[in-house]
Design a binder for these strands. Structure first.
Length: 447
RNA sequence: GGUCCCAUCGUCCAGCGGUCUAGGACACCGCCCUUUCAAGGCGGCGACACGAGUUCGAACCUCGUUGGGACCGCCA
């Protein structure tokens, strides 16, 4: 086993936020680096001076952090192979372009440096995922009419092109595996030609299947949420998005679908990644999110739901942390996103949304009479505990020829303003006797 | 148009020549549980694109057809 250390990189261009496709390839690179105890490198490909911005660079880094993907070398943390922004590596690109020029493998034209595409060379991409892909060098770069086209390596503005910079950097940064989207397969032959011309050893390639929208087309803005942060705003946990994305093109086997980062790292294998493109399915994401929500620590859950309560105009700070955590625990699996959780539990935070939703107009005078009798006794129970409340309610109904629903449903409406909620008596217990009294009195269910 | 890639339930994955009358999960539909809704339990619906080979035997190998996709910028 003399295989060299794993060094992989995620190389986004700062021309937009971190989107789902980028997050997916970053994730797989990270998984492979962590699995093999190697290094995950972040390299910013900002050679498009027009569209690249420092803001986007920050957004991308924030997106990676949000997903829990940490890098060992990058523009912010540095490293032995820096700098990590292509715009800061110009001398390197010039140096090798000079070399190619000297060797007659490239020529100048309109201020640009252009590499002569060789003809008659058989290339084979030994892809870790797709297997061997064979192609002739003259097919590597062509015009629309199919004629051979030379490859621009330095643009007129002095900036290197993607296909050239990526080769120089992957070599200079000692990248051992190039793991990227399948849409780059067609670029690979051009890059291999450059490696050959420069006399460099090639890294190993692994192309990942694309992520498609419902229409089976490459995922893009028109498929809805594109930035990973939009998922945060919709109430998805980073752990869930990580889990869900890892499941696109790969599975740990054994029927396991819900896992955390460590578990994913432990069972990840590049060779188990499949070739078929995957459709991004929101239903599955919802399910995965719900599963992660189920096992989430209450302290963390409260912290993450709080902003969503505030967004609804509620004031969670009026309550003790423990009370809010208890409320969330009571909510259980009701809600697939933190946003839903916040909505569905609003009545624990404030009474006002209850009043907005319910006005007791469905209660007939006769029913009200029964309710008043029941609640008068209910409110003066010696012990304010859900178990005894239920026992009391059942006995009372039995004795008065009523069904439990006749009192439980109005109670739920009065307390929550909703037709669904956790068990009413547990809700009542948590809200407390005084608060329940207030709410019942508001609807004139008790004097 | 050219080059390349892909092809198992609607979707995500298992399957890597025989144990497949193809398994799990999501979604969907029933039933159970129950003061409601989730959750949970049980069950149902539902796929190897097609055609030739190879082989004693093919979802798995080969070829073709069909269907889908990606790429063909001095963008990355």
């Amino acid at each position: 086993m003399t295989e060299k250390n794993v060094r992989v990189r995620f190389a986004p261009s700062p021309t937009g936020a971190l989107h789902i496709g980028g997050a997916h390839t970053a994730l797989f690179n990270w998984l492979w680096a962590r699995r093999r105890g190697g290094a995950f490198i972040l390299r910013v490909e900002d050679t498009d001076a027009e569209r690249s911005t420092a803001e986007y660079e920050d957004t991308i880094m924030d997106g990676l952090k949000w997903l829990g993907l940490d890098w060992d070398e990058g523009p912010d943390v540095g490293g032995a192979f820096g700098p990590y922004r292509q715009s800061e590596r110009m001398d390197l690109y010039r140096k090798y372009a000079e070399q190619l020029l000297d060797e007659g493998k490239a020529y100048r034209e309109d201020g640009a440096v252009i590499f002569r595409t060789p003809v008659g060379v058989s290339l084979v991409i030994e892809d870790e995922i797709y297997g061997d892909i064979k192609i002739q060098s003259e097919k590597a770069s062509v015009n629309q009419d199919g004629s051979v086209k030379d490859i621009v390596i330095i643009k007129r503005d002095g900036m290197p092109t993607y296909n050239y910079a990526v080769v120089v950097d992957d070599h200079a940064m000692d990248i051992s595996w190039v793991i990227r989207g399948e849409d780059h397969i067609s670029n690979t032959p051009k890059q291999m030609l450059l490696y050959r011309a420069l006399g460099w050893e090639m890294p190993r390639f692994a192309h990942l299947p694309m992520i498609l929208g419902k229409d089976k087309k490459k995922l893009s803005k028109r498929h809805g949420a594109t930035s990973v942060f939009e998922y945060n705003d919709m109430g998805y946990l980073p752990d869930s998005v990580f889990n869900f994305l890892a499941l696109l093109g790969w599975s740990p086997g054994g029927g396991i679908e819900i896992f955390d980062r460590d578990e994913a790292v432990r069972s990840f294998e590049l060779s188990k990644v499949i070739k078929k493109p995957a459709v991004f399915d929101m239903d599955k994401l919802n399910y995965v999110n719900q599963e992660h929500l189920k096992t989430m620590d209450p302290v963390l859950k409260k912290r993450i739901v709080e902003p969503f309560w505030r967004e609804l105009g509620l004031k969670p700070e009026r309550h003790a942390d423990q009370y809010l955590m208890d409320a969330l625990t009571l909510m259980g699996a009701r809600g697939r996103t933190t946003k839903e959780l916040a909505e569905f539990s609003d009545y624990f935070v404030d009474f006002s949304p209850v009043k907005e939703r319910y006005d007791a107009s469905d209660i007939t005078p006769e029913q009200r009479g029964t309710l008043k009798k029941f609640f008068a006794a209910f409110m003066s129970m010696p012990e304010w505990e859900s178990g005894s409340m239920e026992a009391f309610a059942r006995n009372w109904c039995e004795a008065n020829g009523a069904s439990l629903k006749e009192v439980a449903l109005p109670l739920r409406w009065a307390l929550t303003g909703r037709k669904v909620s956790p068990g009413v008596f547990e809700v009542a217990q948590l809200l407390g006797r005084d608060e329940c009294g207030t709410r019942l009195k508001h609807f004139d269910f008790v004097d």
